[in-house]
Design a protein around this nucleic acid. Structure first.
Lengths: 230, 230
DNA sequence: ATCCTTTTGATTGTAGGCAATAAACAACAG
DNA sequence: CTGTTGTTTATTGCCTACAATCAAAAGGAT
C-alpha cells in the first residue's frame, strides 16, 4: 500500500541519528494528524501503520502513547487508537486558557520590548494590512502565524512557547472549526495594531488585556459560527 | 527484590479492568516520581523496574514514553530514562505560566461565583488562619492544596484544571525548591483573603490580578531562597 | 599521563506468538 | 419482524527471545 515514499522513512530517518525511531514515528503521525490526513475520530490501525512505515509494532505503540499524553489521540482499551476529536465545548475551554497564556505574552513583552522589535512588528502589521485588503486568506494565514510566533518566542520563555503551540495544535482537532477568521481579516489586524501599540506604551496591564482580548474575540468569532450551524 | 507488595500490583489492577497495564504502570511511576522516591536525575532501569512490577518491558516503555510527553522524565537515546530535573531558570518560567493560568481562574470565577462558594472559601480562610498561627506546616500544606484545587475546579474548565495540575507537578521536580513557603504562612493567607475578597467584589480584573500576584509572590519567595543558597 | 582500541553493559528495535476483547455476523426464538 | 443469543474474525494487549546499536568503562600502547 503506497509503499514508495513511506517505506524509506525508516532508513531515511535512521541516517539522521539524532532521534529514535519512536520519535520519528511520533513526529510523522503528528504531522499526518495536524495536516488532516488522519481525520478526527479516525482509527489508527497498528499493523497497517507499522507495515506502512516499515517498522514493528513496538515503536509505533510507544509513539501513540506519547501522542495520547500530548492530547492528540485517544486510546480505548482493546479498541485502539483514535485521532482526538475536540468538541466545541472543549474548544471554548482551550480558547480561554490560550487567552490567558497569550495575555502573559503581552505582559512579559512590555519588560523586554526594544525599538528594533517594534519596527519589526510594525513591518508585520503593514504586510498583513496589504494582504488583508486583497482578502487573500491563503497568503494571510502563514504571515499571521509568523507574527504570533514571533511574539511568543520573543518573551524568551520556552515553557510558554511550548504551551502556546500545544494549544494551537489542539484547536486544529476541532471538527466544527472552519476557517474561523476568514471573514474578519482587517478586523483581526486592527486588534494586532492595538497589541503592538500597547507594547509601545509600556503599560503591562494594557498589553496583557490587549493580547487576552485578541484571543477572546477569536473565540467569539468561533462561537458565532457554531450558532450559524444550528 | 522486594516482591511482596509490588508483585501483586499486576493482578490487583487487572481485576479493575478499567485501565491497561501501561496506564497502571504510568500512574505508579508518576507516584514514585512525585513523592520523591525516584529523585530528579535518577535513572529508570527498564529491566529492573519491569521485573519489580512483574511486567514485561513493553508496557513499561510505553508508560515512560507517556511520562516523557508529560514532561516528568527525559529520555536519551541509548542511554535510558531519567527523572526530569527542573532547573531554577525553568522553574521561573513555569511560575510565570502558572501565574497566568491562575489569573484566569480568578477572572473566570467572578462570572460564576455564588454566595455558597464565598462562605465555603471563607471557611477555608479561617481554617488556614488558625493553622498558620500555630506555624504547623504539615497541617497547612494539604488544606492549602485543597483550597487551590477548589478554586480551579470551580471554574468548570477541565482543560484549565489539567494544565494547572501539570504545572504544579513540574515544580515538584525542581531540586532547588525547598519547602518554599515555609516562612510566610500568614503572609500567604493574607494574599488568599485578598483573592476571595476580589471575587466577592465581582471585579474580574481585580480578581485576575490578585490571583496572578499570588503566584508571582510565591515565585519571588522561591527566588529569594535561590539567592540565599549562593 | 594521554590517547586509542576493546570490551562490556545497557538500551533499542525486531520477530513471533498467544490470550483477551469487541465488533460484525448468523442462527434462532418469540 | 424484532430482539436475543452464539460464533467468527480482526485487533489489541502482553510476553519471550534475539539481534543491533550505542556509550561508557577497561585495557594497553605511546
Amino acid at each position: 500500500m503506497s509503499a514508495g515514499q513511506e517505506q524509506d522513512l525508516k532508513s531515511d530517518l535512521l541516517i539522521l541519528r539524532t532521534s529514535s525511531l519512536t520519535g520519528a514515528l511520533e513526529r510523522e503521525l503528528e504531522h499526518l494528524i495536524l495536516t488532516g490526513e488522519l481525520k478526527p475520530g479516525e482509527r489508527l490501525n497498528e499493523i497497517q501503520l507499522s507495515t506502512r512505515f516499515g517498522t514493528s509494532r513496538g515503536p509505533l505503540r510507544e509513539a501513540t502513547r506519547s501522542l495520547q499524553a500530548k492530547g492528540l489521540v485517544d486510546i480505548i482499551r482493546n479498541r485502539g487508537v483514535f485521532v482526538r476529536s475536540v468538541s466545541p465545548d472543549e474548544a471554548l475551554e482551550i480558547y480561554d486558557v490560550r487567552a490567558a497564556i497569550f495575555g502573559l505574552v503581552g505582559r512579559l513583552l512590555t519588560d523586554v520590548v526594544t525599538d528594533a522589535m517594534l519596527t519589526e512588528l510594525n513591518d508585520y502589521l503593514d504586510r498583513m494590512d496589504r494582504i488583508a485588503s486583497s482578502q487573500n486568506f491563503d497568503e494571510y494565514y502563514p504571515v499571521n502565524l509568523a507574527f504570533h510566533d514571533y511574539l511568543v518566542t520573543s518573551t524568551g520563555n520556552k515553557t510558554l512557547l511550548q504551551e502556546y503551540k500545544s494549544f494551537v495544535n489542539k484547536l486544529h482537532l476541532c471538527r466544527a472549526r472552519g476557517l474561523v477568521q476568514a471573514g474578519g481579516l482587517s478586523v483581526s489586524n486592527r486588534e494586532h495594531r492595538e497589541m503592538v501599540d500597547s507594547l509601545a506604551s509600556g503599560d503591562r496591564y494594557r498589553a496583557q488585556e490587549a493580547f487576552f482580548r485578541h484571543v477572546e474575540r477569536s473565540k467569539h468569532r468561533f462561537m458565532s459560527t457554531l450558532k450559524a450551524a444550528d
